[in-house]
Structures are given as structure tokens and as C-alpha cells.
Amino acid sequence: MELLGRRDLWWRRLIVAIPYLWLFVFFALPFLIILKISLADPIMARPPFSETVSADNFIFLLNDKLYAITYLRSIVLAAAATVLCLLLGFPMAYGIARSTPAVRSFLLLLIVLPFWISFLLRVYAWMGLLNNYGVVNNLLIWLGVIDQPLQIMYTDFAIFLGLTYSYLPFMILPLYATLERMDLDLVDAALDLGASRTAAFWDITWPLARPGVVAGCLLVFIPAMGEYVIPYLLGGPEAMMIGRVLFDEFYFNRDWPLASAVAIMLLVILVVPIVFLQRNQAREAESAA
């Protein structure tokens, strides 16, 4: 610990206190409020919730089959998108990490670029591709694969494609970071000692890339679970995901307590992956330092 004068100590406390207070008021406190309101009842008033405390909302959520199905559908779609992102993202990250430095920086630029373009507009772009008169259907008809437009838009498949497309860069970047750090001699050493290319991959590359795989999968899965825009724009009216249910309960039904309960349930599902991710990142930061 450095030696500090009185004035400097005061500065120091200020630098800690300002962001600390901000985060506490605008991030931590709201969660306590969500928890409180999830236990309230909806009433016709401003604001639309009572001061009472009951577990009614949670009991309702747990007993209503529709919500269970929605949670399940969200998990399945998010997981499927995560798997496809990994299958696509791993070879891509590997290819980028193994290309020459000049090419590599350009390939990375192309991965990062979509980040900076509005998410909403990128999802919107798929609407033009997937609808009955869209590019994909026109192409398939022109190729003679089908003669009637295929219903792709407003299906779970469209959501799945949209999730994969939107979150693919989140998979590639952490994977790239670990693969790029990896010493290529390690794979050569395994080959030299008699491992086949496949064996060298599973013995060396895969275990060493695991922190990147974990980070990538969680960075895709967690936000995909709560996704609102993609199911709204690409999915059908009955193809609900949990983020959309939450938003609709709040926005259209004005049932704030139920929306809060839905949010709490979503958090409960996500708390394990989020903690897992944070620990993974902390370990990574440590080993990189």
C-alpha cells in the first residue's frame, strides 16, 4: 500500500465513492425493488401495484402451463442457438487466429463491425430475407428447390436463425482471444509425440480453449434467454420467449407485479450461468496478468 497524504486520501475516497454510489442506486437498489414489487398485487392505480406482500404471482407462474412452456422454449431456443454459434464460431475463431497478422486484423474488423450497427436494424434485415416474398424464398424458387414460398418467417426456426446471427460475434471474440494466445508449438509437439490431428485437437486445443468456450457460450446463452426484439420481429404471435412475455405483461397488460415475478424467475434461471461466467472471466483475467 502506498503512503498517502490526507488530501490524496480524500481524493481517493471520492473516486471510489462516486461510481460505487451510482451503481448501488441505479443497479443494486432496483433489484430489491423488483423483488418487493413481484410480491405485490396489481391494482388500477398509478403506480399500478399494491403495498401488500404475497407470493400469489409466483404461485400463478408456477401453476400456469403456458409460462412453463415459454420458459422451456426460451431455454431450448437459446441453447440451440448457443450450440450453432459454437459450431460455427469455433472454426471461424480458429481460422482467424491462425491467419497472417494483416489478414487477421481485417477478419476481426469484419466480426466487430456488426456490433456497431444497430441491433434492431440487423434483426430487421432478416425480415427482408426470410419473408414469403423475401430473398431466401425467391432464391429457392428460382433454383427450383421449391415452387411455393416456404413459411420461414414467424417460426421458431426464424428466431433460432436470428439469435445465432445476432450473437455469433459474442462467441467468436472470446474464443479468438484464447486461441490466439495459444502457443502453436503445443499442437506440433503433440503431433511430434505421435498424436493424430484429431487426437491433438482433443488433447491440446480443446482443453486450452475451454475458458473461451465457456465465456462464449454464456455470452450467447444469457442474453439470448431474455431476448425481446428477435422473437417479436421474427417469431410468430404464439412463439413466445420469456423476454417478450415480460415486456408484454408490463407494456400491454400493465401487470407490473407479474412482470417483476417473471423477471425474478428469469434471474433465478440465469443466476448460475451469470456467476459461472463472472468467475470464469475473473480467472481468465488473473491468468492473463
Binding site: L23, V25, P30, I33, L219, M225, L246, F250
Partner: peptide, 28 residues
């Protein structure tokens, strides 16, 4: 620990949760 947890959580928190929780804060 609390500080770094609060700082990095918004990165992964689903937007619907962040949005709803902030709204409820403002209303309160």
C-alpha cells in the same frame, strides 16, 4: 467484490430485466 460484481453484471444482464428494474426504481 460487491463493487466489481455490480460493475460487470450489467454486461450480461438481459435488457428486459435491467429496463424493468430501472423503471420500478424511477417510479418508487
Amino acid at each position: 467484490t460487491l463493487f466489481s460484481g455490480m460493475l460487470t453484471s450489467p454486461l450480461v444482464m438481459p435488457e428486459v430485466i435491467t429496463g424493468l428494474s430501472l423503471l420500478l426504481l424511477f417510479v418508487t
